[in-house]
Amino acid sequence: MDFLELSGKYVVVFGLANKKSVACAIAQVLTLAGARLIQVVRSEERAATARRLFPESLVFCCDVAEEANILRVRDEIAAVLNGSRIDGLAHAIAFANYAGGIRPFHATAKADFLQAMDISCFSFISIANHFRDLLAPTASVLTISISTTRMAAENYGYMAPIKAALESSLCFLAKSFSGFSEVRFNAVCPGLLKTSASAGIPGYIDSYLFAEKATLRKRALSTMEAANAAAFLLSPRSSGITGQCLVVDAGMGMNYFDREIVNGANR
C-alpha cells in the first residue's frame, strides 16, 4: 500500500553532504516510498557521494550562497522535468562558522551572522521563489530547524536566532503562495542528532549526551526518525498542515526536571 502517496512523484532534496546527513535520511525514506528523487548538493564531490548512495536519482550541483546558482539549477531541473511538476521540496541546508570557537552571543561577528543567515535561512526563501513555477499546485515545501529556538545553548550561539527566522518565514511563505496555489510550507524540528554537520559545533558531544538523558526513553533521537516525519510532511497525507513546526525530540523538551538529571546536578 502506498500510504504516503509519493510513488512516482518528483521530490527535490537540497543538502546531502554524506551518508550521515539529514538530507540523506530523507532521501532514503522517499526512495522507499517510490518517489522520483532529485538531489541538489553543493559540490561535485558531494554529487559523487549522492550518486553512489542513490544511483537511481538525478543529481545537480548548486552552492546556494550565490543566487545565480539557484536560478541555474532551477532551469536544469526544469529541462529534465519536461513539463512535469515537483510535488515535494526539502531544504536541509545550514552553515555557521564556528572556526573561532565558542564566543559570547554579544560578540558574534557580523560577517558570520550574515553569512549564516544567507545560507541557512534566505536560501529557503530564494529556492521557494525561484522554483514556484515548477511546483505542483498542492506541493509541499519543507525545511529543517531545531527543537527549540528559545533556549540559549551557548555552544550553538547565533544559529538559534537564525533558525527562529527560518521558522518565522514559514507562515509568510505559506501566506504569499496562497494567492496562487495551495503549496504548503512546514519544518521538522528535531532534537540533537548525530550528524557530521553537528559534530562541527563546539562541545556538541556533551550536549548530545545530555539530550539523550533528557529524552523520556533515555535513548537518543535517530536521524531516520526526523526523516520519517519529513516524509510525512512532504506527502499528501499532511495536506491540512501548513506554516507549522513539527517538533521531533522524543520528549526531551518536556523532561528538563527528570529525576536522574536533577539528582546528578544536586550532588
Score class of each variant (00 low, 15 high):
258 D>K: 14
36 R>H: 09
2 D>I: 04
223 T>D: 02
207 S>I: 01
175 K>Y: 15
263 N>C: 12
161 P>H: 07
18 N>M: 00
107 A>T: 02
86 I>T: 04
33 A>S: 15
57 S>E: 06
240 G>H: 11
95 F>L: 15
85 R>N: 10
230 A>E: 07
232 F>N: 07
194 K>M: 10
30 L>K: 07
25 A>C: 08
120 S>V: 08
122 F>S: 07
246 L>G: 09
5 E>T: 02
44 E>Q: 13
53 L>V: 10
179 G>D: 09
43 S>C: 07
181 S>N: 12
37 L>K: 06
156 Y>K: 06
190 P>T: 02
212 E>C: 09
185 F>V: 14
5 E>L: 14
122 F>C: 11
137 P>M: 09
19 K>Q: 12
251 G>A: 07
162 I>T: 05
101 G>I: 01
215 T>A: 01
133 D>R: 13
8 G>Q: 13
20 K>E: 08
248 V>D: 02
205 I>G: 00
7 S>V: 01
21 S>F: 03
64 V>Q: 04
136 A>F: 06
175 K>M: 14
243 G>Q: 10
38 I>W: 03
191 G>P: 05
200 G>Y: 02
189 C>G: 08
177 F>P: 05
171 C>G: 06
35 A>S: 15
249 D>V: 02
264 G>F: 11
124 F>V: 13
100 G>R: 11
108 T>R: 00
61 C>H: 03
228 N>W: 08
31 T>L: 10
137 P>A: 06
239 S>L: 02
51 R>C: 12
243 G>C: 08
134 L>V: 10
262 V>W: 02
32 L>S: 14
137 P>C: 09
68 A>D: 14
210 F>V: 03
60 F>P: 03
